[in-house]
Simulated assay, not measured.
Amino acid sequence: MNSTALSSNPLYSTGSFEPIERVANRLVGAAFSPHRHDTYTVALTMAGVQAFNYRGAMRHSLPGQVLILHPDETHDGHCCDQAGFVYRAAYVPPTHVQAVLGGAELPFVVNGVSTNPALIAAAFNMIIDCEGVEDPGAYEDALYDLAQTINQEAGKVATVRIANRTAVMQAREFLETAVVSGARLEQLEQVTGCDRWQLSRDFRALLGTSPYRYLQHRRIDLAKQLLREGATLADAAHGAGFADQSHFGRTFRKAVGLTPKEWLRSDLFRTIIL
């Protein structure tokens, strides 16, 4: 029997939040005894079938599905066959989720397993895309999406309110001046005088994207400009405010659908929007 920790990062920095733990694990011929966490367990099954007892029933998670286990709920975990299973997980404190939901009751995903594409995407962003990214804004953005999608999966109805357009436009103007230096929700809160999580909701409602992703797109625009002017990939990444070339490459592909090198070889490189 063996359980292999593929990786573990218990000190992942989240800026103004306390650190969260991320793990990647392979379980073969072994089992987790009943236990509980004081965090949300957000886990993606990467290979095999993950079986576990949860709230009086046996559950199964297949590759591509997501587990959302509520804090302080007892669960175990075992293999369904000799091949075992591989999973990656993040343990998100309920206080972080509460920061986004503003005091609402913590959402509860009754079955513990979901095939909801939006929730799977949010979990993937939290567990995998944000791993190793030094910018705390990436965690804030992932946390917002995760908290909202868990809330929706739990059947909670969002309160309808009129978005604060003035605050959103102020935030947008500030982001335009902070493309290279970066900006946190805390800074946007100070600039606009609007609660950071409410501002994040309003920004999405009026501009169709989050403050963090808006900033990332402006960074990609700047990087494209630098590349057109002859900058190397490393210089373009640094000049546009990315922590490193790897982060630049991942963000560029998400925004453009091509790697920076592929973009340079494509006709899009020569396209300039007037």
Rank of each mutant, 00 (worst) to 15 (best):
A205P: 01
T209D: 04
Q190K: 13
R196C: 04
Y212D: 13
R218I: 04
D202A: 02
H217W: 09
A205T: 15
D195V: 07
D202H: 15
I220E: 11
V191D: 07
R204K: 14
G193V: 10
Q190I: 08
Y214I: 14
D202Q: 03
A205C: 14
T192W: 02
L206M: 13
L199F: 09
Q216V: 12
T192V: 08
F203L: 10
L215N: 08
L215I: 07
L207E: 10
H217M: 00
R201P: 05
L199V: 15
A205D: 11
R213P: 01
G193Y: 02
R219H: 09
S200A: 14
Q190V: 12
G193H: 06
H217N: 14
C194K: 01
P211H: 08
D202T: 13
S210A: 11
D195N: 13
L199E: 03
A205N: 14
C194D: 02
L215A: 06
R218A: 03
C194Y: 06
S200P: 09
Y212N: 03
P211E: 08
Q198R: 10
H217K: 14
A205Y: 02
R219G: 00
T192E: 05
P211Y: 05
G208F: 07
R213Q: 01
S210M: 07
I220F: 10
R219E: 01
R218W: 03
S210N: 13
T209K: 05
E189H: 10
I220D: 02
I220H: 14
L215Y: 01
T209P: 00
T209Q: 07
R196Q: 06
Y214A: 06
R219T: 00
V191H: 01
R213M: 04
C194S: 12
A205H: 09
Q198T: 07
T192G: 02
S210W: 11
G193T: 12
H217E: 08
E189M: 08
I220L: 11
R196L: 00
Q198N: 10
D195M: 05
L199Y: 06
G208Y: 07
T192H: 01
S210P: 09
Q216D: 10
I220K: 06
R219A: 00
L199I: 12
E189Q: 15
R219Q: 14
Y214M: 09
R201T: 11
L207Y: 08
L207C: 15
L215S: 00
L215D: 06
T192R: 00
Q198G: 03
A205Q: 13
R201H: 14
Y212I: 12
L199W: 00
L215F: 05
D202K: 05
D195Y: 10
V191M: 09
D195C: 08
S200C: 15
I220Q: 06
E189T: 10
W197M: 04
Y212L: 02
E189Y: 05
D195L: 06
R196I: 04
D202V: 15
W197G: 13
S200T: 15
R218N: 10
C194G: 09
R213A: 05
W197C: 07
F203A: 01
Q190N: 08
Q216C: 00
L215G: 05
D202M: 03
S210G: 15
L207W: 10
V191I: 12
L199K: 00
R196P: 04
W197F: 12
R213C: 09
D202S: 13
R219Y: 04
R201Y: 07
R213N: 04
R201C: 10
